[in-house]
Computed example of a mutant assay.
Amino acid sequence: MKIILAAPRGFCAGVNMAVKSLELALQHFGPPIYVYHEIVHNQFVVHSFKDRGAIFVNSLSEIPSGSTVLFSAHGVSPAIRTEAKNRDLQAIDATCPLVTKVHLEAIKFAKEHYTIILIGHDGHDEVIGTMGEAPEAILLVEDVADVDQLEFTTQTKLAYLTQTTLSVDDATRIIQRLKERFPWIVGPPKEDICYATQNRQEAVRVLGQQADIVLVLGSQNSSNSQRLRELAAESGKASYLVDGPKDLEREWFRGSETVLITAGASAPEQVVQETIAWLQSHFDASIEEQIVQKEEVVFPLPKALRALQSPSPAT
């Protein structure tokens, strides 16, 4: 068996920043550190932080007054920020800057009296946070069929935004339909789907052609990981989304000579390497890393943590 290891894969700059933020908060303030929703959508990461004293909550009412709370990479609504302040919580905001960009666009369009069409997945943490910026002005659509249900006249100022972790192809189809039905609609100055999501999808699109089977490392509730699996499946490849080697079944690989391995933007490299080791032990697999794009993006830590970061060694 030959393993093609996709690059880029795994942690993006936003996830890396959020994970480092929680690590630093635990080191400096000590456990427990409360986290509003999962820090990132990956079970390996969440469970490892639980073991170190992080407590993940779905409501701020679960957090004792005066405690430290970290907002996840997916962002939160203004109502959550206000509630945290009212409960005297010490908030650390680890929202990905690319998600913050979408929030700011929503605020700007709402102030200019636009009706905003948000393309995204209902119930996703990022969508909930973005819609919370201007709930009276934002409508959610998930697919082209939803767009076809909309009715507006040319008197309505329309704008669209997208969740950052969507399938590029799906978002393009929905945006195209919006423009067909409402030619006067406007979009953000720069597209919202993040660079890491696009790069990982491009790697699967390009490298998947060489493979018999595609393994995506990531959790089931990870939107960008699901899109990678779907993209591989759409190209006719057997594709599986797994948290790690414990989810693998030998029968999947019967007759497969080449396996492409990638990882969603919230999946740590450790699970990639453990999966490779499993394939090597069962199938004597060889490895070839193929780089489709190079990523050098780095996001700064939240202001509340920057002073706590160890200085880089002198060069």
Score class of each variant (00 low, 15 high):
residue 168 V to L: 10
residue 281 S to Q: 15
residue 193 I to C: 03
residue 150 L to C: 08
residue 42 N to R: 07
residue 164 T to S: 12
residue 5 L to K: 07
residue 297 V to H: 07
residue 236 G to M: 03
residue 113 H to K: 14
residue 301 L to T: 00
residue 15 V to Y: 04
residue 14 G to K: 06
residue 297 V to T: 11
residue 219 S to C: 06
residue 89 L to H: 02
residue 284 D to S: 14
residue 117 I to T: 03
residue 262 T to H: 04
residue 167 S to E: 01
residue 270 Q to R: 12
residue 204 V to Q: 03
residue 250 R to T: 14
residue 126 E to N: 05
residue 208 G to H: 12
residue 205 R to W: 10
residue 135 P to S: 13
residue 211 A to W: 02
residue 210 Q to E: 15
residue 104 L to F: 05
residue 244 G to N: 07
residue 226 Q to G: 15
residue 158 L to V: 01
residue 150 L to P: 00
residue 72 S to F: 06
residue 162 T to L: 07
residue 102 V to P: 00
residue 291 I to P: 05
residue 90 Q to K: 15
residue 145 A to R: 10
residue 20 K to F: 06
residue 92 I to E: 03
residue 208 G to P: 10
residue 98 L to S: 06
residue 30 G to Q: 04
residue 97 P to V: 04
residue 114 Y to N: 07
residue 282 H to Y: 13
residue 115 T to L: 07
residue 13 A to K: 02
residue 253 F to L: 13
residue 141 V to D: 01
residue 37 H to T: 09
residue 178 L to I: 04
residue 258 T to V: 15
residue 165 T to D: 09
residue 100 T to D: 01
residue 197 T to R: 04
residue 63 I to Q: 01
residue 66 G to E: 12
residue 30 G to N: 12
residue 183 P to N: 07
residue 231 L to P: 00
residue 86 N to W: 05
residue 19 V to R: 01
residue 1 M to R: 10
residue 165 T to I: 11
residue 216 V to K: 04
residue 179 K to N: 08
residue 100 T to I: 11
residue 60 L to D: 02
residue 269 E to R: 12
residue 237 K to C: 10
residue 263 A to R: 02
residue 118 L to Y: 02
residue 242 V to F: 12
residue 283 F to E: 02
residue 127 V to G: 02
residue 282 H to V: 11
residue 105 E to F: 08
residue 53 G to W: 06
residue 194 C to K: 04
residue 158 L to W: 09
residue 185 I to H: 07
residue 106 A to S: 11
residue 151 E to T: 14
residue 84 A to N: 03
residue 13 A to W: 01
residue 133 E to L: 10
residue 128 I to F: 00
residue 160 Y to S: 03
residue 157 K to L: 09
residue 115 T to Q: 15
residue 183 P to K: 11
residue 147 V to Q: 02
residue 213 I to M: 06
residue 142 E to C: 05
residue 274 E to K: 13
residue 102 V to H: 00
residue 235 S to W: 07
residue 60 L to G: 00
residue 313 P to M: 06
residue 314 A to R: 14
residue 220 Q to L: 14
residue 9 R to D: 06
residue 231 L to T: 07
residue 69 V to G: 00
residue 84 A to E: 03
residue 198 Q to P: 04
residue 27 Q to W: 02
